[in-house]
Structure formats: C-alpha cells, structure tokens
Design a protein around this nucleic acid. Structure first.
Length: 227
DNA sequence: GCGACAG
DNA sequence: ATCTTGTCGC
C-alpha cells in the first residue's frame, strides 16, 4: 500500500517523481463497472499571472440530459508552481477543497489534464481519482507525451495514443474541424470507455460539457473576487 | 547536451 | 494558465 504517500506532499521535485512512480501501480486501467454514470463532475482551476492564488470550480452534470445539478467552489494559495509533469501537485489541493463543498456524489470526474498519458503514467486525473476513489478521465487540450496518427476531421474520429509501447489514451476529434482533445483514463476506467464517455458528455463544443461549464463557472467565480 | 513540455 | 481584437473557415 502506498496510501500514506497519497496524503503526503512532496518537499521537492525528486520526491514528487518518486511518489508518482509508486502511486502509478495503484491505478486501475479497466472499467470498474459497466453501469452508466449518472452524475458526471467537471473540474477546472484558474489563476492570474503574477499571483499565486488559485480558484477552482466543480460542476456536477446529470447524464444524459447534460444539465447542471450542482456547483461548488474553493480558493487557496498555490503551494506548488506549474511544472510540466507535476501539475497535480499544484491543482489537487484546491480541487479537493472544492469537491468537499459538493454534496452530490460523483459517478465520474472529467479533468482538464492528462490521466495515464503521462511520463510516469500518473497525471492529474489519475492522482485525483486515486485520492477521491472515484472513476476519472483525463481530457486535455494539448499533448504531454505519446504519439498518435492524426484523427479524421469529423466529430467522433479518434486514434489511439501510444507511449512507451502502451496504449495510454486516444486523440479524439470532439468537433468538426477543431483541434482534437487528448483523452486518457485517470482511474478505474479503460481507454474505450473514456473515449465514449467524453463523447456522451459532448454538446457540440470542442470541450465536453462538464469541463466547459466548469471553465465558465471558475472564471465567473474568480472575477467575483475583484469587484 | 538539446529539445519538449497537461495547466 | 493568462492577456487580448479582429478575423478567417466550417
């Protein structure tokens, strides 16, 4: 068990890398259940250049209607800078705080970052999923690691994302003619199900609805502090 | 050593 | 991620 490390925070980069390596073995890369999720939560974090404060919004959506059932927020001082590959150590504390303010019980969380499509197979979505013990999907707007063929131009077209001889996710065209999304399992889910659930939560925009609404919500929340 | 690099 | 206007393509 590496659960102790799950709740201990790294003092330096080297410790952070080791924690990711150790915890990655705890990640389940298959579907925990075949039951369709009803409550899907989108999460997003916002900040301001030149300031260390972070704001977070979590938005619970009901499937398949894609309607908001609840929103929750939190803001704290960042305890960690942004370092590619170590994003979760920066964003998880404020996300945990926001999740504590949510009364709905999520069946699935969609994160704005990578899952196992990560140098040590332990991106933000994996870290958050392990911490919350909830199925999670990483749905990022750009690539961190891996290689894939260019997906077709139509919505729904996708290609497997490979990294170090493993299929770690897929590059998914969520909207015709738009830049694709980088989808990977976070925890307790597999690649195929991650792809299909991102599509099931898409409402015709590039971003899946939970993520899109969380982004709008966190921007609104952050701006409410400067007035 | 060099380039790449989620948010 | 943030800052920031108009502009091009489906």
């Amino acid at each position: 068990m590496k659960i102790a490390e799950l709740h201990s925070w790294p003092n330096d980069h080297k410790a952070a890398l080791q924690i990711q390596k150790d915890l990655s073995s705890e990640i389940i890369t298959r579907a925990e259940s075949s039951i369709k999720p009803r409550i899907v939560v989108g999460v997003d974090v916002s900040s301001v250049r030149g300031n260390t404060r972070l704001w977070a919004a979590v938005v619970a959506i009901h499937l398949p209607e894609l309607k908001i059932v609840e929103e929750a927020f939190a803001t704290i001082e960042a305890g960690y800078p942004y370092i590619p590959g170590l994003l979760s150590f920066r964003e998880i504390p404020v996300l945990i705080e926001a999740m504590r303010n949510l009364t709905s019980k999520p069946d699935l969380v969609i994160c704005d970052g990578q899952g196992i499509a990560h140098p040590r197979f332990f991106g933000l979505a994996s870290h958050l999923g392990l911490w919350l013990n909830v199925p999670t999907i990483g749905c990022a707007k750009s690539l961190l690691v891996g290689e894939a063929a260019e997906p077709g131009i139509h919505a729904g077209d996708w290609q497997p994302l490979k990294y170090k001889n493993r299929t770690v996710g897929g590059i998914l065209r969520t909207r015709k003619g738009c830049k694709p999304m980088y989808v990977s399992p976070g925890h307790m889910i597999d690649v195929d199900r991650s792809i299909s659930l991102v599509q099931a939560t898409n409402k015709g925009y590039r971003l899946p609805e939970p993520t899109r609404l969380a982004h709008l919500a966190v921007t609104r929340y952050r701006l409410s502090f400067s007035e």
